[in-house]
Nucleic acid binder design. Structure first.
Length: 469
RNA sequence: GCACCGUUCGUCUAGCGGUCUAGGACGUCGCCCUUUCACGGCGAAAACACGGGUUCGAGUCCCGUACGGUGUACCA
């Protein structure tokens, strides 16, 4: 029905919460694989669990993907909108002899499984209705079950995991249509993937065994299965499954922590996938390089230190203007007051120095305290220590010299301060550190001479006189 | 229980039978640069889970064991 050559992937989250980091990576891999090959990347919302699905969660998924820069082709598909088609497919399988109506009650099935467990047999339910004559069927609620083969084996050629086999005796006659007529996940996924033209199913390896069951459904429908690629899960820093405390946060939480989308993409791509020794690369390069054989098989731990390092590199290499825009967007997202025109221009002026020292946007904003502060900066503990009586004395003398500076520029200011230190026979640091403390209220900052220039003559002298006494 | 998947420095990984006295990156530690902090430069410590095979030769192939993980639903 479509050109076989085109690659089509999909991301199929269930809208029961935010887009967590594992889901974001799955989406990234699908996006990279398809877009890197000129194919399509689609989004399908698996909202068939009506009780747990919410519109807010759906929106959170959209927002998360957009922030990460993962755009999908066409409209997002609601799986729920396709239930009629799923039902049809189930009936079609019954008609073809690939499925049957099972009248066993939930209790009977549970009892049979409990018995099997006791006898230490595989807990595979064998329905008495599997080969029953349809004429004997009672007029009762029933489910439709797949008539799975009892002999032989099912083989999945997984692009990441390799050849994986299951004895068919391990696979039971799974339910396709529930007694209330609702399709199960197994059925819906297969029907939708096939009809959306999905060629490559890239998903978490928690679905690996599902791939065997789904293969059986493809076979019963007479369809060719897609290429499966089951990627390992992401664990928390402690090796345990991701939990709230350990990074199973929504992607917007990463935004709020000050990470750049391009840095997160870079980090996530590197988690579980590698291209030689490349660590720091652009999305364009990832698009070009990404391939399934490069995906590892083992679960990877989420490491904030490495993310922070990568983020710092992305920040340093960002254009000043772009960074300023990111900061303003973060302020808006966090509902902080926007920058005033003067803060904005000082921030722009100081950006080359600020971005050199920040691993996250949050750190960048913190280090811009001397720009964002209202009035004279309040010295913190370390700065207060630098402002000893002797230091204030030095500052007072230095201020006198600074007042005579005609050209308020970094280079000129540095010359003046250096000359002052020499005349006073003190080390440059003895003048520069108190100067920094008075100007910024901190013991660390971008170069003091740059700070002086950023603040401008009037503001600098105001802060100095406030501390000189 | 049963089935399936996995296991190289603390972490992410390179490695696809000899070039591995196991490479890179983050982190850690030391030194240099330096007005602070970063950046940058140089250097160090740090790993093939264990046991059997196969082979002239195994981190690389096979089988066990251990330890993790996933699945085993009329959830997705």
């Amino acid at each position: 029905m479509s050109e076989k050559a085109e690659v089509v992937t999909r991301f199929a989250p269930s809208p029961t919460g935010y887009l967590h980091i594992g889901g974001a990576r799955t989406a990234l891999f699908n996006w990279l694989y398809a877009r890197g090959r000129g194919g399509r990347f689609q989004l399908r919302i698996e909202d068939t669990d009506r009780a747990r699905s919410t519109p807010e969660a759906t929106q959170a998924i959209y927002d998360g993907l957009r922030w990460l820069g993962l755009d999908w082709d066409g409209e997002a598909l609601s799986q729920w909108s396709r239930v009629d088609r799923h039902r049809e497919a189930a009936e079609e399988m019954v008609a073809r002899g690939g499925a049957y109506r099972c009248y066993a009650s939930k209790e009977e099935v549970d009892a049979a499984r409990a018995r099997a467990a006791e006898e230490k047999r595989p807990q595979v339910f064998e329905s008495p209705w599997r080969d029953a004559d349809p004429a004997d069927a009672p007029d009762l609620p029933h489910v439709i079950r797949l008539k799975a083969p009892r002999e032989g084996e099912t083989v999945v050629e997984d692009a990441v995991q390799g050849t994986v086999r299951w004895a068919n005796a391990q696979l039971d006659d799974l339910v396709l249509l529930r007694s209330d007529g609702a399709p199960t996940y197994m059925l819906a996924v297969v029907v939708d993937d096939h009809e959306m033209g999905v060629t490559h199913v890239i998903r978490g390896d928690d679905h690996l065994t599902n791939a065997a069951r789904q293969s059986l459904i493809y076979a019963a429908m007479g369809w060719a299965p897609p290429v499966f690629a089951h990627i390992p899960l992401i664990h928390g820093p402690d090796g345990a499954k991701l939990s709230k405390r350990h990074g199973a946060l929504g992607v917007e939480a990463y935004r709020d922590m000050g990470y750049l989308p391009e840095a997160l993409r870079n980090y996530l791509a590197r988690l579980g996938w590698g291209h030689g020794d490349d660590e720091y690369f652009t999305t364009e390069q990832a698009l070009e390089w990404f391939d399934l054989p490069g995906v590892g098989k083992a679960a990877a731990r989420f490491d904030f230190a490495k993310l922070a390092d990568l983020n710092g590199r992305w920040i340093r290499d960002s254009e000043d203007g772009a960074l300023l825009a990111q900061v303003e967007a973060l302020f808006a997202a966090q509902q902080r007051a926007p920058l005033t025109p003067s803060q904005r221009s000082m921030m722009a002026h100081a950006m080359p120095g600020l971005k050199q020292r920040a691993k996250t946007l949050i750190e960048l904003v913190e280090s811009a305290y001397y720009i964002l502060v209202d009035g004279v900066p309040e010295p913190d503990e370390k700065a207060a220590k630098l402002l000893s009586p002797e230091a204030r004395d030095i500052l007072a003398k230095l201020t006198l010299r600074l007042q005579d500076v005609t050209e308020w520029r970094t280079a000129e200011l540095e010359m003046v301060v250096r000359a002052f230190a020499e005349d006073a026979q003190i080390k440059l640091g003895a003048a520069a550190q108190p100067l920094r403390a008075a100007l910024t209220g901190r013991a660390t900052s971008p170069g003091v001479f740059d700070v002086l220039e950023t603040l401008g003559r009037d503001e600098s002298l105001r802060r100095l006189s406030a501390q000189a006494t």
